[in-house]
Design a protein around this nucleic acid. Sequence first.
DNA 1: AAGTGGTCTAGACCACGTC
DNA 2: ACGTGGTCTAGACCACTTT
Lengths: 241, 241
Amino acid sequence: MRVSPSFSPLYRQIKTLMLDALQAGEWAPGQLVPGEQELALRFGVSQGTVRKAVDELAAENLLVRKQGKGTFVASHSDPRARFRFLRLMPREGGVRDPKSEPLECWRAKAGAEAARMLEIAPGDPVTVVRRLLRFSNVPVVIDEIYLPGEVFPGLTMEVLKSWPDSLYALFESRYGLRMVRARESVRAVPAERAAAELLEVKEHTPLLSVERVTYTYGDRPVEWRRGLYRTDEYAYMNDLN
Amino acid sequence: MRVSPSFSPLYRQIKTLMLDALQAGEWAPGQLVPGEQELALRFGVSQGTVRKAVDELAAENLLVRKQGKGTFVASHSDPRARFRFLRLMPREGGVRDPKSEPLECWRAKAGAEAARMLEIAPGDPVTVVRRLLRFSNVPVVIDEIYLPGEVFPGLTMEVLKSWPDSLYALFESRYGLRMVRARESVRAVPAERAAAELLEVKEHTPLLSVERVTYTYGDRPVEWRRGLYRTDEYAYMNDLN
DNA sequence: AAGTGGTCTAGACCACGTC
DNA sequence: ACGTGGTCTAGACCACTTT
């Protein structure tokens, strides 16, 4: 007898409930979440079932387990997660020491492409940020970042300049918004005049064009950016499994 | 009291034993591995412990679980795994329909860089393969592939031509060697004369340079390749978690 | 000592595929 | 009907951190 045309195991339902709690901000980034025993009680299941839900959330980098201490909500402020999405690494060993320098920040209306990527209507307000990334004081990356205005109100140059490091850490603490996953599309393009000057390379030098859409909880896109990377000293590293 | 300075849980030891069996060829690619109950008996642990070991091996794409049927050794012949390492996708939807055309195949001695990448001695024999990948009949990728001669004896143009599709499927069935993971390093470079002609683009057109080292069981490097990708119609897609 | 996550076991039952 | 992996439970004990 067919009983369950769309069967969903208990631990997945628990996982969804925990996702809801994360999205609603009940547990904020960096904070300790209730123990497994307590969650088991709250959801009326065994500890093992909670454990499986937490396992999956930890595998997706939404939670971080620390033996003996507890389970925490992942945070962009965590030093180990600071450059989680930055794949650019030195070609020859060495260290990666990025410094962000905001260049511009203005308000605009979403064009067709930005609207499609951010799943908003064309003409909706967006905030655009341009910035330069230096590694060991050498300019390596230009980013142009499109953010839905509704999601990031009051974002100005002053605010950007007051946050020396990660944009995502700023978003997290100022807007309570955590970036969960991203998808990048990488191509090779020639440097245009303006980009060449900023990156201190000759015009037409091949650059990596890295377009990224970043998603928060619930697969909601909240950032679209295009980066131009110099790849003479650095390379886009990727592990394939 | 400190009891275990280097504690290793049981399921990891089981996992290692299973890795040994895979590496030794006791279970060949595509084949069914013994059931969890049987493995539990063989290793003298509970089914749950075997399960955790298999879980990790499945997460690493070494095994594939199929409910109701059993657990199988992952295989490059599996249609779903055929282009597991190829990140190039059409920019505008559409389908990906790669056809491989071998261009050259010769024997050589490993240079300094190839030797370092393949962890062999400079001067050791290597086989070099050059090939062209066409998508919908358009040339998109040139690959130059370095293989340790010891590992791939008797590899010739005739052999390559007799395998229409995946190189890795060939390696697997002819040499019993499975590619487990890879690391890619992506940069933007200008097209040189020869590459430009093959890819039917103008000289100096920016191309993606994709260098890949591929590893088999036990993190043993067995392939080093450099690809040049046209990225006008296709892009290197990457999911960040 | 107490609390957390991590491991291991044993057993029951469910969903899926095959015979 | 049977065998496979998938889920769920309950309980014991281990490893790590803090009090």
